[in-house]
Amino acid sequence: MTKPSLRRLVLAICAPLAALGLNASANSDFPSKPVRIIVPYPAGGVVDSLARLIGNKMTAKYGQPVIVENKAGAGGGIGTDYVAKSPPDGYTLLMVSPSHAVAPLFQKSIHWDPVQDFRGIAGFGAIPNVIVVHPDVAARTLSEFLELSRTSAAPATYASSGIGTSSFLAGELLVQTTHVPLTHVPYKGQPEAIHDVIAGRVDMMPMSTSLALPQIRAGKLRPLAVTTQQRASALPDVPTVAEAAGLPNYDVATWLALLAPSKTPEPVLQALSDGVAEVIAQPDVKAKFQELAIEGQPLTGAEFDRYLEKEVGAWALVVRQAGIKPN
C-alpha cells in the first residue's frame, strides 16, 4: 500500500472515532447551559406544579438553571409544537399530560405526532380525576347525577380544562358509556374551570384530585366518584365510577411525563432520564408527589414511550366512536 493510501485509510478510521470522542465529551458535560421545560398549559395547574418541582431539583443537581416556561393555548398544541420544532439537543423539554396523546385528533392545525416526534425521558405516574359537583346540585351520588341529567329538560353541564384534556376525556367517556347527555363547557385550564364550578355556573367537572381536595375539604365541592379503576388513596371513601355507576371498564387518569424531541441523542436522553430518576427518588420529592396525589410507579423513558403508544390508540377509538372530527 502506498503512503498516501495508508494515510487515507488511517484518516478514514480515526475521523469517526474522533467524532465519537467529541460527542461523548459533549454529552458528559451535559448540561452546559440552561435547560427549559415547556409547560403547554397555563400556570397554576398540576402539570405546571410538577414541572416546577422537577425543574428546581434538576437545577440543584446540575448547577445549571432549569427554567419552566408556560406556552399555553390550543389545548396544549402551541407549546408542544414549539418543542417539536426545537433543536433536539436536550435543552428544550416538554411536560405533558393526556391531551398530548389526543390533540392531533381534534385540531387540523397540528402537524406533530405525539409518538413519532418525541422521546420519553420519564413517566411520573398518574393523578386520579375525581368527578365533583357544586353542593347545590341535587345529587349525592354519581348515579343520582346521571339520572338527574337524563330526566331534566336540559342536560347537566360539565366543565373541562379544554378539548382533549383528561377532564374532557373523562366526561366524554362517561357520556359514551352511560348514554346520558351532558353539555360540555371547555375552559383554557383547570383553575378557570374550577372557579366556575365553585361559583355554580357549571354543574360538574372531572378534575385532578390534587386540585379538588382543598375545595372538597372546604365544603365548596362534593365528590361523586374517582375516574380510575382503583380508589384514590387521597379519597379512600369515594367510590370509583365502576362502583358508582356499574361501568367496569371506565378508567381515566391524568398521567404525567417529561419528553424531548425525537432526534435527541441517546446519551443525552439517558443522562436526563438518569437525572430525573435520581431526583424523584429523593424523600422530599416523594412527599410532594403524595401531596399532588400522584400515584403509581414511575416509568423510564422507553417504558413511557410504549405506554403512550397504547394511550393514543385507545383514545383514538373513543374519539372516533364519538364522531368527533378535527377542527
Rank of each mutant, 00 (worst) to 15 (best):
H100L: 07
P16K: 10
Q190N: 13
K71R: 15
E303K: 06
V68C: 01
G323A: 08
D237L: 12
G45W: 02
L299A: 11
K325R: 13
H134S: 11
N327P: 15
Y41W: 07
G301L: 01
K61Q: 15
S152F: 00
I38S: 00
D48G: 03
A101W: 11
P16I: 05
V96P: 08
V66Q: 04
V115Q: 03
G219N: 11
Q215A: 15
I127H: 10
G301R: 08
N129T: 09
A225R: 11
I216S: 06
P239S: 06
I163K: 10
A156I: 06
V130W: 06
P128S: 02
V39N: 10
S97F: 11
L317C: 02
N56K: 12
P298V: 00
V96R: 11
Q176K: 12
Q282D: 10
N27A: 14
A122G: 07
E147W: 03
M207K: 02
S32N: 13
K263R: 15
K71G: 00
K220M: 11
K325H: 13
A277C: 11
F30A: 07
K108G: 11
P128L: 06
N23Q: 14
L22A: 15
G90Q: 03
H179E: 13
E278I: 10
A18W: 13
I324Y: 14
L11F: 13
V285Q: 01
F30C: 09
S208Q: 12
S208W: 04
L9D: 04
Q190C: 02
K220A: 09
F124E: 09
L292C: 05
L235A: 03
S49P: 01
P326Q: 07
A193L: 08
V279A: 04
P4I: 03
V197L: 12
P206S: 01
I194V: 15
Y307R: 13
P298Y: 06
G79A: 08
I54F: 03
G275Q: 11
A281L: 06
V312E: 07
N70D: 04
M1N: 10
